[in-house]
Structure formats: C-alpha cells, structure tokens
Nucleic acid binder design. Sequence first.
DNA 1: TGTTTAAATTATTATATGTCAATATTGACA
DNA 2: TGTCAATATTGACATATAATAATTTAAACA
Lengths: 204, 204
Amino acid sequence: MLSKQMISMDAREILAQYLQNYVDLNEDESNQFVSCFEEIKVKKRQFIVQPNFIAHHVHFIVKGAFRSYVVTDEGNDHTTSFAIENWWITDYNSFIYQQPATSFVIALEDSVILRVHYENQKELKQANHKFETFFRIIAERGLAFFQRRITNNITLSAERRYDQFMSKYSHIAQRLPQYALASFLGMTPEFLSKIRNNKVQKKS
Amino acid sequence: MLSKQMISMDAREILAQYLQNYVDLNEDESNQFVSCFEEIKVKKRQFIVQPNFIAHHVHFIVKGAFRSYVVTDEGNDHTTSFAIENWWITDYNSFIYQQPATSFVIALEDSVILRVHYENQKELKQANHKFETFFRIIAERGLAFFQRRITNNITLSAERRYDQFMSKYSHIAQRLPQYALASFLGMTPEFLSKIRNNKVQKKS
DNA sequence: TGTTTAAATTATTATATGTCAATATTGACA
DNA sequence: TGTCAATATTGACATATAATAATTTAAACA
C-alpha cells in the first residue's frame, strides 16, 4: 500500500477533483478555475473571518477543520456552522453583500485552505457558464442544508438534536471540542455533558 | 391618480420586471424566461407542497402570502418560512434533490403564483448563462437569509426574536395569523400572546 | 345574519434547559 | 516532563418557556 506521502495530492488537484463531481471541465478550464485560488496554511486557533471586517474570501478546506460562531452582547458564543475537508466556509452574509461580518471563523486544527477573493470569484462566474453553474449548485446545496438545520433546531428537543447530529456527523463530532458542538446544537456545554452522561448510564 | 385596475400588470410582466433587478435581459430572453412559468391561482388554505410528495416546482409569488411548515410526530406545527409578493417558496431540500418533501406550503390568502417545473428550470439554467446567474443569485441570497435566521434563533431569547422580527418584518406580521408567527419564532402561541401583552402593559 | 369553526387570550401548573460554582480532566507548550 | 490554561464534569438551584384547560374574540360560510 502506498504511503500517505506518496499519494498526497497538491491542494489544487484536490479542488479540481472535487469540481468534477459537479461540472464537466476540460483541462484548460479546470486550470483556469483553480488558479484563481490561493493556498493558505492556517494554524489552530487562527481566524480567517472576523466581525466588523468584510469577508473577502470563500474558503475551500483542503485539510483541517473550522468553526464559525457569533458572540452575543452577554459574551456567549454560538456556533453557526462547521466545515471539514471538501466543505466551504465563510460569513455568507458578509461575503455576498460585501458588508462587515458578524461572525468569527476559526481553525479548530492546523489546516490548509484554498481561498478565492470576491472579485476573482465574480470574474470566474462571468468567464464561463460552467463555473457559474458550479457556484449555483454549491449555493443551492447550502440553502437546502440550512433549511434542514432550521427545521431541526425549531422542531427537536436538545437531546434529539444531539442524537440526530451524532447519527449523521459523528465523524465530525470527534474532531470538535464539546463546547463547540453544544453551542452548535443550541445548548450549554453543561447540558450536553449531562445528555451524554445519561446515555452512558442507560447503556450499562 | 390611476386606479389599481388600470395599472395592474400581467403576472409575467411582474416577473420580468423583477428579473431586471438581477440580470440584464433583452426582450427575447425575458420572454423565453417567463414563458417557462405557469400562472396558477391558489385559494386560501390550499397546499402547493405536501410531505411525501416531491416538490416539482419553485413558486414565485405575484400576489398573496404563503407559509411553509413541518408537523412533528407529536402533532406540533413549526413554521420554517414565509413568503409574500416577489419572494420564492418551495421545499428546497425536496426540489433540489427531487426527493419527497417533509414540509407543507400553504396559502395564507387567495394568491396568484408563477411556478416553474424542475425540468424547465434545469433547461433555463442550461440555455442561457444569464438565467443561470439569476438562479445562482437567488440561491445565494436565500443562503445568506437562512444563515441570519439560524443565528437569530440560536442567539436570542423568545422576546428578542419577536422584537427583531417586528422591527424588520412588521408589514408581514400583519398578514399572518399569530400562531404562524409564533411557530416561526420558535415559541407557543400562548407565549407570544404573553409577550405582546407585556409590551402593551409597559407602554401604558 | 346567525351559527359554526378557528384563533387569541388568560391563568395555573409543569418541565426542559440554563446558571453558577466547585472539581476533575485533558491538552499545550516552555 | 511538569506546569498552566483550556475544557469537561457534576450537583444544587433558578427560570424561561411549554402544556393544559377554560374563556373570549374573531373569522368563515351557508
């Protein structure tokens, strides 16, 4: 079996491969697309989006994990989303309208991302119908994802929100600090701790 | 001043005009776009999307108001979104993936909509880069809207969610039954009633 | 226009979840 | 490898919001 080193791909190759899931590009097109992205290494706990600054980029995660969260006036933090490999993350409200962000996006691990600037993305969208299609698909899927998330949050109890998350995303839960998961699910870390403890009790 | 009758526009003209806010189309293009839409009159309390049926259409509201909601196993209903004139509504998760819906979309008033079938929308997107751009923009805006909505729901208390909604959408609130607003804001109708009553007390 | 049905209000009681504070555990990095 | 900071756990207590039920008000429609 090949070692990880030997089969490791260049970041842009990974993005190019990901692209092929959605649109059929020839080599030139693929190169044109990925060359608009800038590769960045991000250290754990480093921010890539901050409140009051405009989010100039959308970030594609090649390796690592991020979380995006808001902080209320009372100082409580609330996770709005997560992202791991092959996901996109930014403050969409800030990015789309190019207005100051309200949320943080922070690295949960040492990570590698490919980011595209607002203006460059705009040019890509204009340059080629297929690129436009790609970004349309990503936006539509994000929309459907968020609609499901809202439904879950309004509909389910804290414990069932936890169960639902674990059944779908337990692999992500493993990479998250528990307070981040708690605030994503809309509960306190203490309460999440109790939910987990209850489950252990029941099993034995 | 002209009477309402005299200045009333054909439904497709309204859509065409709306389109011009987002993309620059010539007359042929505009006609091609709107001719893919079907005009439907919908009576109050009539459904345009139902659970277990695939949402085949996206609906553009020419006149009227709709609400989309889910019903839990316990029989509680939860509003996931509203829409009035010049908004779009469907079960996006169902429409995008063409899988059975989980939510209802129901008319709150006698309404007029323009709907486009999944296959027709697909053809439109392929036919013209500008049409693709248009749907991309709509999806992106929906995404940003839902991200704000999630943030509000996780972050704010029931009363502050109400305040925030009223400050932005009081014109919509007037057209909604109160139980629908309550379930949109994630609280019981009884509790919303109390919040409103408290405010009246305070003022006097 | 009256009669039926749906929606909103109000009060009482119940509960899920939050808050606070103290302790234990884990991870970072010097 | 030890020390300090970050995270997780636990229990006692507090509270925002839900549930239930009964009454009033408003809307539907025949």
